[in-house]
């Protein structure tokens, strides 16, 4: 039980860090990376939370998270493709 609680706290702090990355990003790709990481970690967090609350039969939600996260990523990439011709200043300038 203690291990589960510790893991959930760790995952929650990882989510907070990834969220910070998504909020304060150098480039647009960093932002997507942060959002993607929050998504995968949320799926794990829901799985752990099910065990913590003693009702692990709600794992379907974690599957939906993983799936929607993937589709969101693909949609973002497709969006870049449409807007590729537009000048994109913050990718070039700050690509440190």
């Amino acid at each position: 039980m203690l291990a589960l609680a510790a893991t959930s706290v760790a995952i929650l702090s990882v989510m907070a860090l990834a969220l910070a990355r998504a909020l304060k990003a150098d480039t647009v790709y960093d932002r997507i990376l942060g959002v993607n990481m929050v998504g995968t970690k949320t799926a794990l967090f829901i799985a752990i939370m099910g065990f913590l609350n003693g009702r692990p039969d709600f794992l379907d939600i974690a599957i939906v998270y993983a799936l929607i996260n993937f589709i969101g990523m693909i949609a973002v990439l497709r969006f870049f493709e449409y807007t590729a011709s537009e000048p994109d200043e913050d990718t070039q300038e700050k690509s440190k």
Binding site: V14, L33, S95
Partner: peptide, 14 residues
């Protein structure tokens, strides 16, 4: 996963 999150901030380029 914690090391990964730290890497997200500490590594120099994308």
């Amino acid at each position: 996963s914690l090391t990964g999150a730290i890497g997200l901030f500490r590594f120099p380029d994308f």
